[in-house]
Amino acid sequence: MGEQVPDLLRWARQLFTISQAGLTYCKNEFDLERYQQLKEMAAEMLASHSSESKEAVLQSFSMQAGYATPKIDVRGAIIRDGKILLIQEQSDGRWAMPGGWADIGDFPAETVTREVWEESGFKVHVDKVIAVYDANHVAPLEFYHAYKLIFQCSITGGQPQTSNETLAVGFFNLNELPPLSRTRTDQVMLEEVFAHYQDPKRPTAFN
């Protein structure tokens, strides 16, 4: 499913994971220096493959203290009258299912309910899990390894409303989609969403 993660990105993430584990658990000061060098090497590799500087990548790394694990991205899939709810992202002007990074201390369903409300103006009930994907094999992310959880939701109230993160809210047919923000939502995800609405007994998709 999706694109192949470029080898350089995959190697750099693996180096970062090794360095982060070493910096977390190692006690020997000489080895700590080597793990720090490994972390900086990973940052240089990622910077060479992106528009970010090495310093910006290291700053991004610094937000992931301790043992490196995947981040969790949750998305709410809402279909009404045969059309799917999408929001236009402020960051890139493209469209995606409402959602975002999961918050520590919240249940995944709580996070997606809040994200849908904040980004689209709709209150929803979470019905089931549609899919669990390795997000980096959908559309490669520069710095993070992430899992994407897509929840089927039903509207219980509210009305279309933008936020400081969104430019517009709309419903679209699968064959008339606007330009998608592919690290957030892509065509294959939406096809899976529609397949679940057409077949309520369809099992959860995963990779």
Score class of each variant (00 low, 15 high):
Thr17Ser: 15
Arg202Pro: 10
Thr24Ser: 12
Ser91Gln: 11
Leu9Pro: 09
Thr24Pro: 00
Arg184Asn: 07
Phe122Lys: 01
Gln161Leu: 12
Thr166Ile: 08
Phe61Tyr: 11
Val193Tyr: 01
Leu190Ala: 05
Ala12Asn: 10
Thr111Cys: 10
Ser163Tyr: 01
Lys71His: 03
Glu176Tyr: 13
Phe206Ile: 00
Gln20Tyr: 01
Val129Ala: 11
Asp106Val: 04
Thr69Cys: 10
Asn207Trp: 04
Asp134Phe: 02
Val129Ile: 14
Met45Asp: 06
Pro6Met: 03
Arg114Asp: 10
Lys27Ala: 14
Arg13Ile: 02
Val57His: 04
Tyr35Ala: 04
Lys54Trp: 00
Ile79Tyr: 07
Glu55Cys: 00
Leu174Pro: 11
Phe61Asn: 09
Thr162Pro: 06
Gln90Asp: 10
Met97Ser: 06
Thr166Val: 08
Ser120Tyr: 01
Arg10Val: 13
Gly158Leu: 03
Leu85Cys: 12
Thr183Ser: 05
Ile78Ala: 07
Trp11Gln: 15
Gln90Cys: 09
Thr183Ile: 11
Lys54Tyr: 02
Pro108Thr: 08
Pro140Thr: 00
Trp11Asn: 14
Thr185Lys: 00
Thr185Phe: 05
Ile150Ser: 06
Glu142Gln: 10
Gly105Phe: 06
Thr24Leu: 02
Ala109Thr: 14
Tyr133Trp: 12
Ile104Leu: 12
His49Asn: 13
Asp73Phe: 12
Ala135Lys: 05
Glu110Ile: 09
Arg34Pro: 09
Phe16Pro: 00
Gly82Asn: 04
Phe16Cys: 10
Thr69His: 07
Ala77His: 06
Phe122Ile: 04
Pro98Thr: 02
Gln64Tyr: 14
Glu44Arg: 11
Glu176Asn: 14
Pro200Gly: 04
Leu46Arg: 00
Ser19Asn: 05
Arg94Leu: 09
Leu180Ala: 03
Pro6Tyr: 07
Tyr133Asp: 02
Lys83Ile: 05
His145Ser: 15
Tyr67Lys: 13
Lys148Glu: 12
Glu115Tyr: 02
Val5Phe: 05
Arg202Leu: 15
Asn175Tyr: 05
Asp31Cys: 01
Arg10Gln: 14
Val138Ile: 07
Lys83Cys: 08
Asn28Ile: 03
Gly170Ser: 01
Ser91Arg: 02
Val57Lys: 04
Phe172Tyr: 15
Arg34Leu: 11
Pro178Tyr: 05
Thr183Glu: 01
Val188Arg: 02
Ser48Gln: 05
His49Tyr: 13
Gln4Lys: 13
Ala43Gly: 05
Glu52Asn: 11
Ser51Asp: 12
Asp92Gly: 13
